[in-house]
Design a protein around this nucleic acid. Structure first.
Lengths: 154, 154
DNA sequence: ATAAAATACTTTGAAACTCTAACAAAATTA
DNA sequence: TAATTTTGTTAGAGTTTCAAAGTATTTTAT
């Protein structure tokens, strides 16, 4: 299961760089496995990300969702084609601006959203159980820092 | 640039769960942008991961590299086809066991490896500039714990 | 010793995800 | 009102991945 693709070392010798890559990959793998849920059956990680980008109780134009996902409109169109056919996402023409296609989640789509979110929260909170609250604080602080650093140059 | 696809919140309100997803995506995006380096031109993230899995001064059978990457042999075969053609990776039949194909990096492959590694280290160290070394220690410890938690159920 | 099974890898064919470029429709601007 | 911009879809192609079938080599069991 290839914990990290980088040479194996004792945990205390792993540098932060390797830890970040490794941890993220591990989380991703687990996330994929959680998709045989009753509410997310037959969906891929990409589908879930699309559902999340549509938003729980929002009606967003393609535009907005594509930006959230950092993909082109063409990509989102095909993604939505699938999810609309499967009954997770709804398409409506905007009345104010008839160029726009507004996306929203169906009831089934909201169930999938919540199932994924719940799983995610549970995973993370279990994983963090072993940490002291000091460790949790530092971890949150560091992650926020790393993220904002990267976002600043994106 | 879609920092996270999840609703925007102030950094201090972000939960660890969102931080993980968000940070991960941000790092990935930046990592991709760093690939127009002199030594990594024309390579994708996947290619870099493959190069890393081959190892700097190792001669590993396909088998081992595929496991490190958590992909099938078929997948690795096509990946190596490309990298061999481009001159980053070398294939040799093992003399001890002629079923085995041993992979190693060419000089060019090692340059790409080092360029990527350097970039990565620099990114992370810059990003963590604001943390005290004590905080960095705690962070490393916390990440290692989280990672091992996830690996245990992979 | 040799037949059967296992191992290591490649090839083939297909699916998922992505993009660019060309197109169409509606709204805005000149 | 004509030109431009915005919003989205379609068409065509590239990349990455896998499962299944096939090849070559080694190991195991008889």
């Amino acid at each position: 299961m290839a914990s990290s693709a980088y040479p194996a070392m004792a945990a205390h010798n792993l540098e932060l760089d390797d830890l970040f890559s490794g941890t993220f990959q591990s989380v991703m793998r687990i996330e994929e496995r959680a998709l045989d849920n009753r509410y997310t059956q037959g969906l891929t990680i990409t589908d879930i990300h699309t559902i999340v980008a549509v938003g729980l109780y929002e009606r967003n134009p393609m535009n907005v969702c594509a930006t959230r996902l950092d993909v082109t409109l063409a990509t989102l169109t095909t993604a939505v084609n699938k999810l609309e056919k499967l009954g997770y996402v709804r398409r409506e023409r905007s009345q104010e601006d008839r160029r726009k296609v507004l996306l929203s989640l169906t009831t089934q789509g909201r169930k999938a959203y919540r199932a994924h979110l719940l799983f995610h929260k549970r995973m993370i909170s279990e994983a963090l159980n072993g940490l002291t609250s000091e460790e949790q604080r530092v971890l949150a602080h560091a992650l926020a820092k790393v993220k904002s650093f990267f976002d600043a140059r994106a």
